[in-house]
Design a protein around this nucleic acid. Sequence first.
DNA 1: CACTCCCGCCAATTA
DNA 2: TAATTGGCGGGAGTG
Length: 877
Amino acid sequence: ENIFDRSRMSPKTPIKNEPVDLSKQKGCTPERNPITPVKLADRPQPDPWTPTANLKMLVSAASPDMRDREKKKELFRPIENSEQSDTPESLQYMVDDSTIDEFEKQRPSRKQKSLGLLCQKFLARYPSYPLSTEKTTISLDEVASILGVERRRIYDIVNVLESLHLVSRVAKNQYCWHGRHNLSQTLKMLQEAGELQYGELMNFFQHKEQDLECKFGERKKEAIPNSQEGPLLDFSETDCTSTSANSRKDKSLRIMSQKFVMLFLVSKTKIVTLDIAAKILIEETQDTVDHSKFKTKVRRLYDIANVLTSLGLIKKVHVTEERGRKPAFKWIGPVEFPVKTDELRGHSPRSDLLPGTQRGTCTPHPSCATGKQKLTRHASFNGAQPCEGTRRKVSSEPSSPRQERQDEYCSKMINLAAVCRQKIEEDTRNPSTPSSLSVLPLSGDFDFCVNSLPQAVFPVVQADVTRLSLSNGVSSQALHPSTPAASKTENGKPTQLSNQPFLCFPSSSLYMLCGGLQENSLRETPPTAGDVGNRSAEAQAAIPPAACPKRSSPKCALPSAAIDDEEPAAKKQNMEQSDVPLSLVIPKKAFESPMTESTPASGSTSAVHLEAFHLNLASPVASEAVDKESTKPLDSQEQEKQSQNKDSDELSSGKEPSSKENANQPFLPQYLYVQPAAGLNSFNFLFSANQAPGAISLAASPLPSLSVPCVMVPSAALASFPLVCSPAITSALSSISDGSFSAATSVNFSMSGLASPTPVFIGTTAVVTPRVSPAPVDPQQPVHPALHLSPVLASSCGAVKLDSPVCMGHPVTLLKLQQPSSAPLTPKNIRPARHEAFFKTPGSLGDPVAWKKNEGNQARNVSSVQRRLEISSTSPD
DNA sequence: CACTCCCGCCAATTA
DNA sequence: TAATTGGCGGGAGTG
């Protein structure tokens, strides 16, 4: 077919331009008709083709011509005419009608030009299972010319293939064809990553939102995983990548592709709707909600889907949901992979992944590959590991297993986040307000916020968690006395507070993210504690400075009340100190009851979910932690630091900000709050901006980062509100909820009214310890555990204030807080630098090492997830 | 009209 | 600086 087309087309114009021109020309082209007779089949019947055969044909035929043509295109255009004219066309031209029709046919219909088809052609050129020994190099230029397409299109294909390790980039314009040998491994990795992440979420969701689940469940699940996935992938693979280009690549098709695939692998149904996937991806990316972004994401997903379809991994289907029929894709590729994890992590993954990529260049790769590299890479590694680095990071290779672990944790975190987002999104959608996120005026900021949150938070969190025990908690404190945390603690809030992890609230759909705001630091908090921290916060803030305010305002609402009350003073102080944890919340009361209540009463589902969640997390975490530790000592440290930072940040940010003054408050914590409008099924998330930083810090391991403190609240519950986290409480909590949790404890939250519903609370920090504890030493491990969620009931106390008002109202609000304060909080180890960089903006930092990554990531915010991941990974020192 | 998604501008990166 | 990559979104093709 192609050939035909080519013959016709190619002669004329190579590719693009033609359409229009062609039309005219086409008229001319008639000649082709003669020629094309064959063509008939071409367009219309894509399927039929045999990829290879056609390809070959095309190639053979086209290649020569095509190449030239493309290049010539422009030239040709003019020429085309001539050419065409040359041919009988002119005559035909006359003929027009008939000819024209043919043209049309011939004319490359859109379908013919589709990326999927192009991909098939591309794939046809290479053996699915090339001899392991030999490597086939692919020249982009050559392929482009052969296939008669713009190079740009080839990039689209190659990027997706690269994400699956079917090819790897060797050098400029040069890719190495690996074939599908590694595909299963790659898929395993992705699946694992996805599962880890989303698994928890899944459970969580499932329990709670069964309803949603029905429809959404899958989605959510998927979504969750996705989010995680992204990161995971990123981490593992990205590490390198991230380093180099956080910015662009984060959003890259490559990453999106991996995430997308992860979703499928995670999904029970194996069906992923585009919208869900888009949402998920956006989340990760942080982008947000904008409709435009959504559209863009969808476009990209189509691009990816076309390639995956060509690979025979998915097929288009339609899913009928509430809203109606939605386009979706079903996974038709392999579902089970034998070794998955082990291999992946152990070696196979890498080998597979890497290998695939191949970069033989990077011998070192493995090491490099590992997540950390990125981080380190930046700084130290760059030089050291050129391999990948040189490459571009290739993208994602799955590099190291370790990373994966981290990733897992992270992913979990992420998943949660993702879930939240999804919910949010859903809510938004459903509800009247489509884009909840967008809702916030902050959009820009918003993005940041979001990004930051997720990214920073999650990743960070994980790392921390794993390594540190969440936040603060235990590990950090215990483990790292030296850490800032302690100091903070003194201030008033225990370190733990600062750490705070997550809170999950049952009901409604709010999402709050809290971050420390720069402002805080600015304003009030003098950087005392940790300049760095502050800075970091600032940095973050900086990025979106504008945003901050915005957010703050919105958010303010929420927490503010509660926060204000409590915190104000304390908070500020804390902030200064750096802590501030989640004061937002409130709650002392909560403590008490919460735990208990939560567990039992609360409920219900949510509680359960949470718990489950915890469990899940914990286990993985722990393992990961261990692994990581073993593997990466650095990371752990970093993580710790991060965690600390986070904690502090979180805490600080958490509270205050929101409530009161939002933006400017002394410290505003940054929160990201999202309300789901509609029905949210809800989750509410509360993140503290602070965390992000922390998270960032984590970077060390790519993964890790659960530490982030987040609070998720179910929308429903929100109404009541509830949650608060107070450091103090934490302890209580810990005891209450799970043991695990308690230890860490930092988290506290109380839910007020909601109790019943299910407030869930997840605290990273606190929890950690206990379970993990064993490994206390390694903070990391503990950390994971930390994540646990503990459901808490909140009493209605203070918490309510916070949220309810504000939160509830808006569909979504994100606040980004940067919270500098936090940094201060836990200054610990954290390197200031990072934070700064981290926060700062992307560019600014120049920091060395970690920064880079972090910065990059952050800077970009955009790509939130990835970056986060990256960031986290970065940490290493 | 909605869904797809091609096309290619142009920014980010790299050489 | 030039070339390579690749994000992004307009807007056209398709149903």
